[in-house]
Structure formats: C-alpha cells, structure tokens
Design a protein around this nucleic acid. Structure first.
Lengths: 207, 207, 207, 207
DNA sequence: GATGAATGAGTATTCATTCAT
DNA sequence: AATGAATGAATACTCATTCAT
C-alpha cells in the first residue's frame, strides 16, 4: 500500500469513479429509453453495477437525472463554445451555436430526445442551457447588433426556437432550409430586420 | 327494452356516449393529475364506469390521450376564436389569442401543465394547436403586416413563445410584463421592428 | 345465467370469498412466520392468488392484519363462550375461559405466537380480547364474588396473566401447575383470598 | 503511537471501547426508532463507525439487541434499587419500584416502547427484569407480608402488571389513578386483601 | 481492527391488461 | 357492451452482509 496516499483518498477515488460511471450510464440509457422510462435497474446494469449500488450514490432517480443533465449541458456548452471561438460577431456566434446544437441533436437522434426531455422536465437544465447563450448575446448587445436587453426570457425563447427546430427535423429528417429559417427567426427575435436576417442566416450557416 | 327501435342504433348511441364520457373524464383527470399519472382506473372511475370498459373503446392510454388532446385543442380554438372575433387586425388577433392561452394556462395551473405536457408528448396536438394560429396569420399576411410566408415552422415557433411564457410564469407567478414581452417577441418573430412591436404589444394587451 | 340473481350479488359473492380466503391465509402465515414477517407475497401465495390481488381487497398489510386479528378474536370468543356456557359461577367462567385460551395457545404453538404478537402490536385486538372477559367479570361482580369494579385495566391485567402463562409454557412446555398458579393469580387479582384462590383454582381446573 | 504499551493491550482496550460504543449507540437508536426499525447502518453511524465494523463485534442485530437489553435492564435495576434503598418494607419496595419504572417509561415515551418491545422480543430481558424484583419479593416474604412462594411466574406476573400499565398510559396519557390501581393489583396478586391493598397503594405512592 | 463500497435478495406497491360473467 | 376480479410484470427502494484495502 502506498503510504503517501491516505486510505480515504483512495476510496474516494473509487467512489468518484463509480459515481461518474452511473452518470454516464444514465445519459446512455436516457438517450435510448427516454427520460421517464430510464429505470434504475437498467442504469445500474448498463454500468455493470448492482441495483443497490445506485443508492450508495444518489438519493433517488430524480437526483441522478439532474446531475446527468448538468453534465450533458456543460459538456455541450464547452464543445460548442470551442467551435465558435473564432467567430467575432456576437450574432454569428449565437446562430452558429444554435445551429450546431440542432444539427447534433437531429443527427444523434437519441441524444435529441434527451435534449428535449431534459428541456421539458428539468428546470435546472433549462437554466443551464439558457446560460450557454448569455455571453454571446451580451457580446452582440455590446456590438450594437440588437436593441433588446438580454434577460432570461429572451435566452429561453432562443433555445425554444432550437427545440422546435429539432422536434420538426426529428420528425421529418435533417433539413437545411429549416435550420436556416430557424436562424432567421432567432435573428428577427433579436430585432434584426427580416431581409437582413435572411441574408445573414444564409451567409453565416453556409460557411 | 324497447323492441320498436333497432338494437343497433340504440347500442351505437350508447357506445358513442360512453366513448365521450371517457374522453371527458380523461381531460378532467389529466388536468388534475398530470399527463403520465392519469391511470386508466382513475379515468374510468371518474366516468362512473368499470375499468374494463376502457378496453371496449380504446386500445391503450395513448389513444385516449390523443383524442382527448384533440378535443381540448378544438374547444380552446373555438373559444379563443370567439373571443378575438371582433378584432380586425391579424397581428392583433395573433398576440391577443396567444396571450389568452397563456393567461388561462397560468391561472388554471393544472391545465397549464397539461398544455405543456401535451405539447411535449403529442405530435398531433402540436399540429392542432399550431393550426389555431394559421387563419389569423394568413389574415395578417394579406393585410401586409408581415413579410414572411406562413408555414408550420412559423406557427410552431409562435406557440413555442407561448409555452416558454407559461413555463416561466408557472414558476414565478403570473406576470404581465412577461406576457407583454412575449407578445413583442412574437411580433418581432413576424418581422415587426422592435420599437413598433413594443408599442403595439403594450397597446393591444392593455385593452 | 340465473336471472333470479343479479350479476352484482354473484360478483360480490366472489369478492367476499376471495377476501375471506386472504384473511384465512393471513392467519395461517402469521401463525407460521410471526406477525411482522408475514409478507404479502406469502399470504397471497398461500391463498393461491396473485400478488396484486391483495390490493384489490386491502389497502396495506396493516389493514389485513387488523381484520385477521378481529376474526381470530371473535372466533375464539365464541368458541370459548360456548364451552363455558354451562358454568354458573362468574369466577369459574373467568378462570376456565382463560385456561382454555392458554391451553389452546400452548398446544397450537404457532397460534400462541400469533396471540402474543397480536396482543403486542394491535391495540384493537387488545380491546377485543379484553371484552371477551367483560360479561363474565360483570356476572362475578353481581354474584358478589369480587369487591372490585370492573374496568378495562382489570380486563387487560387478567389477559396479561394469560399471556405470561402462555409465554412461559411456550418456552418450557405445557405445564398444569403453571396454569393452576395462573388461575390462582387471577383470582387473587380479583380479590379472592390466597388460600381460597388456591383451593378454587385446583378444584375448578381439575374438572 | 505510544510504543511503550503493547499493541495487544491497546487494541483490546480499543476493541472493548468500540464494542461499548456500539451497545450505547444501539440503545439510543432503538429508543428513537423502535425495536425493529433500528438498522445496523443507523446504529454504526450514530457511533461514528463504519457499518462494516459492526460485524467485527456482533454476529447479527439480534446479538447486539440482546446485549443492549441487558445493559438497559442492569442500569435500570441499579438506579431503581438506589432510589428505594431507604424503604424498609418489602412490599413498599416492590410497588414503588414498579411505579418508578412505569412513570419513567410513560414520560420518556420512546423508552417506554423499547421496554415493551424488549419485553416482548427478548426472553433474556424478561428474565433480567424479573430478577430486579426478586430480592424485594424475598424480603417481603421474610417479613411475612405475603403467603406466596416467590418464583419466576410470580415475578413475571408483577412486571406484566407494569407493562399493561405502561401500554394503557402510553395510549391515554400519564394517569396517577391508573398507577395506583396498578399498585393495588400487584398487592392483591401478592395476597394482600383488596381493602388493605387500596389503602397501602394510595398511601405509599403518595409520598 | 476498521473501513465503506458493492452487493443482491427481498418488500410493498402500482397498473395496464385479460377474461369469465 | 359493460363489468370488475384477477393477474403478474415492473418499479423504487431497503438493508443485512461481504470483502478488498
């Protein structure tokens, strides 16, 4: 035994690993079975753990779901932020980010359902997701690209545009026109004139 | 039993009545208990019927839910349409209709959850609800109030604005400012310039 | 179908039969496994019914246990009352009844454990059992055999004598001396002088 | 670590301390949660130990419960014996001891339930508790206050009087009349004439 | 000896569904 | 067509117990 590390830290490492495994597993299962149909049995089995182990780490299914949603939101936020890092215009960042979320959700269908489920069920998740937009919206505001004040309602509305877009494309298949219209809608929502929105959406999403 | 009338017509009348009773009952129970917690036992009991009777009329809960949703959507559509009948401007009709739906959903909390649940779960319901807007949107288009072409995506986006508004107000309480901002957002979505939208929203919803 | 009986009464007959079967079964299982270890699964299995059937008839295990205890108490009361019907002296009735309960409980060991379990757990059962004694005690009072006023505490004390007797004999085996001493104790409790109690107990229980 | 003392003695000291901690903890938890609801996890947690530690000291919950009951009985015996030390009459000691046990059990409600639970579940506990009375009963016998021979049955019967009294008062609230009647009953059980019992009970318990 | 993560059998309870009447 | 008793699979959750560290 390595005496430089305490028993405790070792054990905590294991604890953390198991915990993480459960969260990962939950994300997988929720993606496959939907948000409410993800049973604890299935989640633990997918993690290769015993049923009861779940309760060593979480109080109930709700707790796990919340944590899983946060993890998903955070990972997505980071990824997308990286991908739009080199864009300089706030509005561009907003519509490209949104479009990337939508594309991802439609292509990885299961994942899209998780996104929609979490959006519907979990207040926290809505907050987290909305926040992803906040920085870029404030940037756009500073750049004078929108006359609106940035608040939670506006953020939620923009994400709602994305959700509608995903819902429609999950039903009818991936569709670039729909995504461009979605971008236009977001721009109009932010106060851009329709013809300018049309032009900008087409141009930015065609890159 | 009266033998002068055919068994068939009597039975069919009864059949229809029982069917309708189940749908009504489902609406009540779903409104009280939420979408997924409405059990068949409860629905049939509320209708004063035996639980087995359900299976003489519907294949499963989903079928009933769909029919119930259609009924709700239709009733709501009629009601709202009646209430905005004397408005002449298409845009006015759209934002007043939306606002009425939102107010109703927030005040009758349970009902609001049903609305959101149905919106989330039931594709048909989304279609039906979206259609409520269609006529008014087309009117606005004819009146030259919007440069956009009216399609399903746009309809869904407008309802999504309403849903976001309801969600937020169910959490934070009824809030007129939120509802006015929602109307503004819808107007901007339809291509109205932000300052015009602001003015119009305030003016129309203050009546 | 027999048209002289309504559907309802037929069905209710079945319902009653199943209900009774569950109560019987519960008594058996409780006798074997003890009061708290009688699981619903076991009770329904012993009745040849499905797990879920239980919940068509009782709200929870507690409800069933209470009903079962009442049934046991009532049956016992009737039986014993019949057996001591030809005794004329109130005190005789009391000590013979008690002795019969004790003997029965010790011989049918499982049954003895039920008695003790129910006595310990169920307030209602204590009341029911205590009441069994009441009439005979009042008779003894009228006959001038006891100077005490008859109240619930006294009834419970007498049954407690029986319970102690059962407990000891379940451990050490059936023992007539113990039962006679128990009868003496009950008589002393009722105010009979020790030497008279000794004589009466021996004489009455030797019949 | 102090190397001047042998590991063994230290460890054994530790072993005993841990063991004692578990017993103490068990008493606390049982008093709060009741006899069957005291889980091992809760007991170990209350002792500030890991749940696995339990199995280094006891085979199962039953073992611990038994030991805990003995400790409780002994402590109570000592305490009560101290409190009645200055009484000279054996009968007085018996009814005052009993009354003190009853009062304590009714006031500290949780504790009362433990007493009853242990009395019901644990044969050893019944023996230990019965023994508390033995010395005083023998004294009463030597003083010629009772014609009865002192045996286990009699001891158990007296404690049963106390248990009935506790049960009733836990249900209906602390009640001096009930406690006096209990004392009378014990005296009658020991062969005291009803009117003498009445007078003595009242007089002794009023001090 | 102490730890505490992992285990998995066990429990109550729910509920859609079937089917004999 | 209506009934409602019976079904049994499924679910969340508990807890005594094991064992590697």
């Amino acid at each position: 035994m390595d005496r430089y590390f305490s028993n405790k830290s070792l054990t905590q490492g294991k604890r953390e690993r198991t915990r993480a495994a459960l969260i990962d597993s939950a994300i997988q299962v929720i993606a496959q079975k939907g948000f409410e149909s993800a049973s604890i049995k299935e989640i633990t089995q997918a993690a290769g753990l015993a049923n009861g182990t779940f309760y060593n780490h979480f109080d109930d299914r709700e707790s796990l779901a919340r944590e899983a949603a946060v993890v998903v939101a955070m990972e997505m936020a980071e990824e997308i932020a990286g991908e739009v890092a080199d864009l300089e215009d706030g509005l561009d960042k907003v519509i490209v980010s949104t479009d990337k979320i939508v594309k991802r959700a439609v292509i990885a269908e299961a994942w899209g359902h998780v996104l929609i489920g979490a959006w519907h069920y979990l207040d926290d998740f809505r907050q987290d997701i909305a926040q992803i937009m906040r920085r870029d919206l404030k940037l756009a505001k500073r750049q004078g690209s929108t006359p609106l004040s940035i608040n939670q309602l506006l953020e939620l509305q923009i994400i709602a545009m994305a959700i509608v877009s995903v819902t429609l494309q999950l039903k009818n298949g991936l569709n670039k026109a729909t995504r461009i219209e979605t971008a236009e809608a977001i721009l109009r929502l932010l106060g851009v004139a329709p013809e300018d929105a049309k032009q900008k959406a087409k141009q930015v999403l065609s890159l």
